[in-house]
Amino acid sequence: MLKTIFESLFTMKFLLSIVRLSTPILLASIAAFISSSTGIVNIAIESIMTFSALAGILGSYITQNAYLGCLIGLLIGILTALLIAFFSMKMGADAIFVGIALNTFADSLAIFFLYQIAGEKGTSASLMTPILPAVDIPGISSIPILGEIISGQYLLTYLCWIILIVLYILVYKTPLGMRMRACGLNADAAKTAGINVQVLQVLSLILSGFFAALGGMYLSLNYLKIFSKGMVAGQGWMGIAANGIANGNYGALLISSLIFAAFRAVSIVFNTSTIFPTDLVGTIPYFAVFVFVTAASIINYYRIKHGKVEEQ
């Protein structure tokens, strides 16, 4: 029994599930990355994912068109980001508290709207909702192994991959990206170089909202095909954790996200058998994040102590 489980960790299916599970975490982590690159802490990623996941489903249900639903979800994500921008930059509220507040009543708010339209408080299962497709790429799908991974994924997964590349180019190769990083590293220096720091910070928040919204909608419009209460389940926070561990390093950001996704996959594999207690198996991904984040900070602590890096 144990053997078959461990064997299943080295199968194609397992690799595929990592790919599937990584999409929302990757999107959440770049959402955290882009806002922190201009020096804005967006901890509301979890709530944006929740809002957009719901808005996508409801939009898709109302318009009976998954793409229009997706558009509505994006809009809601961006509006939420703008709400954070408005309160933290124009109204002088602490961005962290705004984020905590949003995260905390995200579920209530989502249920409020779900109830208005579906008449239910738990899931959107009763709604006939068109969803986004999975895409077969002709030609590639026939290649063994690689073809299986690359082809047949959900639409938003492909979009996520494209965004990962475009974002890298934007941040590290274009003037706009350089200016954004400058805002995060020394806002005064950016300002005196004639850069409008606030505009770039708002822009980065909008992008952050955009990415988080995609992550949320991947869950509802692609992966689970419905909205259900608590479906984001800390994946927004995993993105924030990955960004914290990576500390501005794009490669490390992606790798940490993939590792977290892998632990989610492990937890799902373990859950298929009865020899592990399901309650504890369910905590594996969270435990992994806990361990990685703590380990990263301990390493950093000793690096400071031994004079390898300066305290920030």
Partner: peptide, 22 residues
């Protein structure tokens, strides 16, 4: 150690509820 307490405490929330169920 300067660990991000927000992330850690939220992860612990999920871990604790799993342990409680168990």
């Amino acid at each position: 150690f300067g660990t991000n307490e927000m992330v850690v405490s939220l992860m612990l929330n999920s871990i604790y509820s799993g342990i409680s169920m168990f």
